[in-house]
């Protein structure tokens, strides 16, 4: 009582203490999160919470895990999780049945209109479902939250061929480099296949997707972009990753897989990631041996997906950035 307001004698007070979002947006966000929980409880999917801090980290060279010192265990280094994937797969192997998680994920260095290093990720798994059935459920959830309907389902290879004239799975590296160089000479010169695909998809295909009013489901990814998806052959006998993505307004909202269950293949991909990290001079964090042990013990056939909740809330409320739907973006955190 009686203390003067905002006149610290020590240092000028920062003027950015206020939230990034309006209070009205935060109320709307809370209602949308409640609807997510209802969506899953109505369907008998169990809500779980797995650790944000883990002794292992994602191997993917494109993901930067943030490390944390934990004094309890000597000089133990823990990592803020880039997604709850490993832990949730361990629950699935333990017989959890269908599960979902609505929690925080952390990805270092990712900051921009549609990125924040700390963000809210919705991830769920459906044992016994293939990726197409799961993709339909993703579209249903998006319609429930945003009112936006599904407008198209597209095959990655066909989209890519239409926009670049090249076969994403089989085109020789020099042809991909030439196509990328025509847009940005330096990028075409030394990039690997996956980077070239990312670049051409981002610059040539995504602008096309952004013209659709509804959601666009893209499936059948090239095997260079399989990540943790199983491989299969498409109708032409061409190898393909059983992975899908959902776009709305040109923004990627969901990324899902028919999950890889083969422990030998999973270890091979982890090791390949570490080799790539070494080549790029990136840190090589400890692999999740417990996830491998869970696969060895037996993962049911399962499809899983991750949805960026900040983006979904932003698009549902007509925003064109995530900061206006976050209490505090990283620059105010």
């Amino acid at each position: 009582m009686g203390a003067s307001v905002g006149t610290s004698p020590h240092s000028p007070l920062p003027d950015d203490w206020q939230p990034s979002a309006t209070l009205e947006r935060l109320r709307q966000r809370a209602r949308l999160l409640a609807r997510v929980r209802t969506f899953f409880s109505d369907r008998g999917v169990l809500e779980v919470e797995t650790p944000s801090l883990s002794a292992s980290a994602a191997s993917d060279p494109q993901l930067h895990s943030l490390g944390v010192e934990e004094p309890l265990f000597g000089a133990g280094r823990y990592y803020l999780q880039t997604s709850p994937e490993s832990a949730m797969k361990r629950l699935l192997a333990a017989g959890s049945g269908p599960i979902y998680q609505l929690g925080r994920a952390f990805r270092g260095g990712e900051c921009g209109t549609w990125h924040n290093p700390e963000f809210t990720l919705l991830e769920w798994y459906r044992p016994g479902w293939d990726e197409h059935r799961l993709a339909s459920e993703v579209l249903e959830l998006i319609t429930t939250l945003t009112g936006v309907r599904h407008s198209a389902t597209r095959d990655y290879r066909q989209l890519f061929r239409r926009r670049t004239g090249l076969d994403a799975q089989n085109a020789p590296l020099p042809a991909l480099r030439e196509a990328a160089s025509a847009i940005e000479s330096a990028l075409g010169a030394e990039s690997d296949r996956s980077t070239l695909l990312d670049f051409l998809f981002t610059t040539r295909v995504v602008p096309l997707l952004s013209r659709c009013r509804g959601t666009v489901l893209v499936h059948g990814f090239p095997t260079a972009q399989a990540l943790q998806a199983t491989l299969a052959e498409d109708v032409d006998g061409v190898p393909v990753a059983r992975r899908f993505e959902v776009y709305l307004g040109g923004i990627e909202l969901a990324n899902g897989y028919a999950e890889l269950r083969d422990v030998t293949e999973q270890r091979r991909r982890f090791e390949a990631d570490l080799t790539e990290r070494r080549r790029l001079g990136l840190p090589e964090p400890p692999l999740c041996e417990r996830q491998l042990a869970a696969l060895a013990a037996g993962l049911p056939e399962v499809s899983g997906v991750a949805v960026g909740i900040d983006r979904l809330v932003a698009l549902a409320l007509g925003e064109r950035a995530i900061a206006p739907v976050m209490a505090f973006g990283i620059n105010r955190a």
Partner: peptide, 12 residues
């Protein structure tokens, strides 16, 4: 300046 990152892919 816009940060774009497709899926878990290369960031641009």
């Amino acid at each position: 300046n816009e940060f774009v990152k497709p899926g878990k892919g290369q960031a641009f």
